[in-house]
Each structure stands twice: as C-alpha cells, then as structure tokens.
Amino acid sequence: MFKAYTLFTLLFFVSVTVKAQDSVIPEISYPYLDKLITSAKIHYPKLTGYNDKINLARINVKRAGISWFDILTFSYIYQPNNTLNYAIPTTNTGTTVNRFLFNGLQLGVSLNLGSILTKPYTIKAAQEDLNIVRDEQNEFLVTLTADVKRRYFTYLLQKNLVKLQTQSYQDMQTLLKQTKYKFQKGEATFDVYNAALITASARAEQKLQAETNFLIAKSELEALVGLKLEDIE
C-alpha cells in the first residue's frame, strides 16, 4: 500500500514539475504591448487631467504676456468750447476771461512703476508653472508605461497558470478515474483512492483560484488601457 501511494505521488508531482517549466517569455508580444501603452496614454483619466492642466497653464502664459498693457493707465477729459463758465470781471475792461486753459478733448497716460518691475517675474512664474505641469505629466507617463508593462506581464503569467492548472486538473481527473477503477477491482487500497480524491479536490480548487487571478489581472490591465483587451488588435 505504501509503495503504491508513493509511486502515485511521485508520478503526479513529476508531471506538475515538467509542466511548471513552461515559459511565458515566448508569448510576449511587444507590438501588442506598445498598443496597450498607447491606449493607456489616450484613455487613462488622470492623463487627460494633465492635458487640461497644460492647456490652462498655456493660457496663463499668454495672459501674462499680454498683461504688459496693464502698466499703462489711459484717461481723458472732455471740455467743450461752449461750456458756460463763470467769468472773473476785471476793473479795466468790460470783457470776461475764460478760466480754462485748454478746451476740447484732453488725453492722459500714466505708468505704473510697480507693475513694470514685477511684470517679468509674473511672466516667468506662469512659464515655470507650465514647465512644472509638463514635468509632472512626463513623470506620470513613465509610471503609467511601467504599470502597463507590469500588468501585461502579470496577465500573461496568470494566463499560463490557468493553462497549467487546467492541464493538471485534467490529468488528475484521468488519474482519479484510473484509481477509482482499480479500487473497485480491488487492485488499489482505500487509502490510495482517498488520497487521489483529496488531491483531485485540491487541483479543482487551484484551478478555480488560477482562473480568478487571471480575470483579476485582465480587469486590472483593462482599467489602465481603457478598453477591453479583445478590442485592441
């Protein structure tokens, strides 16, 4: 009984070990990975927010540039020629004298010295704000690219684990049927058959867990790229 159970266990784990040596590297498609990264750069909401911030910063730079006119203050006074004015009578003549030196439209321009001194710094600050947002966007693009790659590789890993666990489960089911047949014929003990049942149950659970992990990895990757993987060719 002990020898039969030992032989069964060794054969089973040798089979699993051989399958576990499979590699995911041949399945990596770098052109497809580039498409995933491009899709993430287009659809990921936070990156769209950075684009809006950059557009706003550009508007502020332009606004700061044309605000040079703020240092000038224009004013005017309109004094019609026919305005009635009180005249100051003189003792030597019977005529009156107009108190206003200038008549008609009078324009004036004044400069704000404080604005002249601070305006270059205002423009530079607006440009620096734009540069900061661009740097933040570039930094986020590097992080986003790395996250897409990591989740893509994880997706491939979980996909292969599903294949591995499915094959292991199918092999175990075949072995279980054989063990059951031998047990019914009296060629295998109950302990061997019971061990096969326990192992088959464990393989079924591992298969379900692998499938769940695969679906989670797929959904996490799709959350980054913004589309279903099936829609990206």
Rank of each mutant, 00 (worst) to 15 (best):
Q79F: 04
P80S: 07
N81F: 09
T83D: 12
L84Q: 10
I88M: 12
T91F: 02
V97A: 08
R99C: 04
F100Y: 15
F100Q: 14
L101D: 11
F102D: 12
G104N: 07
L105R: 10
Q106H: 09
G108N: 12
G108C: 10
S110Q: 08
L111W: 08
G114I: 02
G114D: 03
I116H: 00
L117Y: 00
T118A: 01
K119L: 04
P120Q: 00
Y121V: 03
Y121A: 08
T122P: 01
K124E: 04
K124A: 09
A125P: 02
A125T: 04
A125E: 13
A126C: 01
E128K: 14
D129V: 04
N131I: 01
N131Y: 02
V133G: 00
R134K: 05
E136H: 02
Q137F: 00
N138T: 02
L141Q: 01
T145W: 02
T145D: 03
T145E: 06
R150E: 06
L157H: 12
Q158N: 15
K159F: 07
V162I: 05
V162G: 09
L164Q: 13
L164F: 13
L164A: 08
Q165R: 14
Q165S: 14
T166F: 03
T166S: 14
S168L: 04
S168A: 10
Y169D: 09
Y169W: 08
Q170R: 10
Q170W: 02
Q173H: 07
T174S: 13
T174L: 12
L175W: 06
L175E: 06
Q178M: 11
T179V: 14
T179A: 13
T179Q: 09
T179E: 11
K182W: 13
K182R: 14
K182V: 06
K182F: 15
F183S: 12
Q184C: 04
K185Y: 06
G186C: 01
G186Q: 01
F190S: 13
Y193N: 11
Y193C: 07
Y193I: 08
N194E: 15
A195Y: 11
L197S: 12
L197D: 11
L197N: 13
I198R: 11
T199E: 15
E205V: 10
Q206D: 11
Q206E: 13
K207W: 06
L208M: 10
L208N: 12
Q209A: 12
